[in-house]
Amino acid sequence: MTRFPLSEAYDLPGNLLRRCHQISVAIFLRKCEALKPTQLQYIILSALEEMGTSDQITLGGYTALDRNTVAVVVRKLEERGLVSRHRNPEDRR
């Protein structure tokens, strides 16, 4: 097993990516403090703003989220009164 002193570990790609993620989350939380969305809620709201009304499968493809995740996030957004969902009358499920 290769050993890295702590001073070298700071420069490893995985650590740098982790730090970038921490910083990006902190910036996101500061910028979105008023609405307090999660990052997934934000991406769904942004996609809906850009695309307009959409079904959950299309929304998932556009945001690179699986349809189950989209369903959960959209349900949470609906509970908060930020989106409304309507059944497609042509969908027999």
Rank of each mutant, 00 (worst) to 15 (best):
T2H: 14
R3D: 14
F4Y: 14
L6M: 12
L6H: 15
L6F: 13
S7L: 07
E8N: 14
E8L: 11
E8M: 15
E8D: 15
E8G: 13
A9T: 15
Y10Q: 15
L12G: 04
P13F: 07
P13R: 14
P13G: 10
P13I: 15
G14E: 12
G14V: 15
N15Q: 15
N15D: 13
N15K: 11
L16N: 14
L16I: 15
L17P: 14
L17R: 10
R18I: 02
R19H: 14
C20H: 11
C20K: 12
C20A: 13
H21Y: 13
I23R: 12
I23H: 08
S24F: 04
S24A: 09
S24G: 09
F28I: 00
F28H: 02
L29W: 01
L29N: 08
R30T: 03
K31F: 00
K31D: 07
C32I: 01
C32H: 09
E33H: 05
A34E: 08
L35I: 08
L35H: 06
K36G: 00
K36R: 09
P37S: 06
P37R: 10
P37K: 13
P37T: 12
T38F: 02
Q39D: 07
Q39I: 09
Q39Y: 00
Q39T: 11
Q39E: 14
L40P: 15
L40Y: 11
Q41K: 02
Q41C: 03
Q41L: 00
I43W: 04
I43R: 11
I43L: 11
I44Q: 08
I44F: 06
S46H: 03
S46N: 10
A47F: 05
L48R: 10
L48S: 10
L48V: 07
E49K: 03
E49A: 06
E50D: 13
E50M: 04
E50A: 06
M51S: 01
M51R: 06
M51P: 00
M51H: 01
G52D: 11
G52R: 08
T53H: 02
S54Q: 08
S54C: 07
Q56H: 08
I57W: 05
I57P: 06
L59R: 08
L59Q: 08
G60Y: 03
G60A: 04
G60V: 04
G61Q: 10
Y62P: 04
Y62R: 10
Y62C: 06
T63D: 09
L65A: 04
D66Q: 09
D66A: 00
D66K: 09
R67T: 12
N68S: 07
T69V: 04
T69C: 02
V70Y: 05
A71H: 09
V72A: 11
V72C: 10
V72R: 11
V72H: 07
V73D: 09
V74C: 00
V74T: 03
R75S: 05
K76D: 14
L77V: 02
L77Y: 01
L77A: 04
L77P: 01
E78Q: 08
E78M: 05
E79G: 08
R80Y: 01
R80C: 05
R80E: 14
G81W: 03
G81N: 02
V83F: 05
S84G: 05
R87T: 12
R87K: 08
N88G: 00
E90N: 09
E90L: 08
E90F: 03
E90T: 03
D91T: 02
D91I: 00
R92I: 05
R92G: 00
R93D: 11
R93M: 04
R93C: 04
